[in-house]
Design a protein around this nucleic acid. Sequence first.
DNA 1: CTGAAAGCGCTAACAT
DNA 2: ATGTTAGCGCTTTCAG
Lengths: 348, 348
Amino acid sequence: MVTMKQIAERTGVSVSTVSLVMNHRDEGRVKPAIAAHVRAVADELGYRVNPMASSLRTNRTHILGFISEEVATTPYAGGMILGAQSAASQYGYMLITVSTDGGMDEDEEIEALQRYGADGFLYAKMSNRVTEVPRRLNDCPLVLVDATDPDGLVPSVEPDEYRIAYDATRRLLDAGCGRIAYVGCSEGGMIAQQGRLAGYRAAIEDAGRKFNERLVVNVLNNGPALEAVSDLFDWERPDGFFCFNDARAWYVYECAARRGLTVGRDLSVVGVDNHRVFAETLSPQLTTVELPHFEMGYWAAAKLISLIEDRSLDESEWPSTTAPMPPLDAGIPAKIHCRLIEKESVVR
Amino acid sequence: MVTMKQIAERTGVSVSTVSLVMNHRDEGRVKPAIAAHVRAVADELGYRVNPMASSLRTNRTHILGFISEEVATTPYAGGMILGAQSAASQYGYMLITVSTDGGMDEDEEIEALQRYGADGFLYAKMSNRVTEVPRRLNDCPLVLVDATDPDGLVPSVEPDEYRIAYDATRRLLDAGCGRIAYVGCSEGGMIAQQGRLAGYRAAIEDAGRKFNERLVVNVLNNGPALEAVSDLFDWERPDGFFCFNDARAWYVYECAARRGLTVGRDLSVVGVDNHRVFAETLSPQLTTVELPHFEMGYWAAAKLISLIEDRSLDESEWPSTTAPMPPLDAGIPAKIHCRLIEKESVVR
DNA sequence: CTGAAAGCGCTAACAT
DNA sequence: ATGTTAGCGCTTTCAG
């Protein structure tokens, strides 16, 4: 490991000068020629700061803690993490991901992160729910990802469920579907459900059609759900389906198979892909909406860093739409709509 | 943050004494009464070591790097991470997970981990392949998880594919299946395929049956695969299927649905669940084999720590079988067979 | 403009 | 058995 001392020796200046140069605080304080020389030698020797050592003085580790209890079970958590990591490394931070498999160990893990001096935290869920924030995080810079806190005090990045549903439904309309059903979610606390239903309804009505309650079924992810979808099939004969998630799209798929119908020919399905079932298995047959996990992670981390560094962030560049949806049944996941929910933030 | 200095002041001893006590190096060096007092005060004040500070002297951060390029795409990566994390925290280590989405950034991320002083690395894949280890990791303590290095020099933890297949097939035999097919993998470099096929064959033959080549199809995960399985269905009429993974089990499922057959009644399927398709969607219908990701992560981390600390590890307690398989079609994922592949290790 | 010096929290020789 | 001292690599006054 090459240290500042070594650079100082090689260049004949003092460590403090090297420090100034390496931290880009040399403007008008170090003679440009010297600064250049120092930089050259540092490059040559392959100098890298020792974050541990500097954190001792500065109380900044450039470590971000990413806490999620669902990394273990949902594949798309990876996207969020990748996004957050990408922003982190862009700003010179390191992301420490901690998976807290349920409650007990969570507090301990957060404590460990704090011991290691994390400068701030990302607290993530895999589907937007009202989420109690662990007390231990109360006085740290904090951003929620795909989650909402009960008091509306913590900044968060969430998908724009309304627009997701609106566009998905619009897509089915464009594809010429006459009777479009919504297979929603009846589980409590799922923030997405309201927005999705509203978006679905708005798209239908904006197209000059009448909203038909009977084309909506809200189900849980279990046995009775299959029956509910089956009944929907027989009674309403929809030719287009917007599904809350892939588990629900699966019921549609199964019902179709049992009736000798082919998705993509006899009926169209657009669903939100939460568990990669679409991507891994059904993608050839279904059009999927992939939530912008990467973007959510990215912007959440960017926001967090701005909080930590007390900078402002140019939120105008944030994507409200990250990509247009692909043609129906093309099987290419679409990333759409990531909206930032800005809240009064708890600083440091 | 409470420091050793504060404890020293409160107890009227020197910092070095406190250090000795807090590191459990006080046996015979510090008077028991004093040690107890120090500990009491430390407890009271809620003292926690500052790992950054001690790492500066000791060159040990108690940080483990977990590197995987597939965390982003495979849900079960979470299990590995959880396992590794669990072992880490048990031994007083912190796990830093880094997802390297493909090649380029990988080297950078590893470099960052090394700057942060990681004591050792776990390098993981999500399905056992021959894997070139990044050069940068060459001189670090390193353990592979679900991966094999080309030269056989790096210690690794891998699933016992033979036993997995043997037991899965055995299960189908026990269920009374007469014609058991194997839907395997024709992709190159998949170490699991050989073991699985061998295990399948051995189970068949040990049951006094004749191995029938025509009941084996090895396919890729794509369109022609469905046709191949479809042909298998029509030509050989199997009543039991052992599937390489869930994507392949899906083909079986679809073929059955199209023929009006019900899995779990007209035919039995046991498959390895790589992508949670089973767990999330098909579990009511299929018996699944869930690879012991948690255990692999756990033991890999434990092994790594023993390497770092130059301790030996009691490998006799390692689980060769972690749980018996559940009754057929119960839909409960089974964790089976995790074998440690011990290699000549590259030390520190 | 540059350097000397102090100190972040902790560990480890070396004294006592 | 305990304290003194030096120093890990870096940042940051403060003098010059």
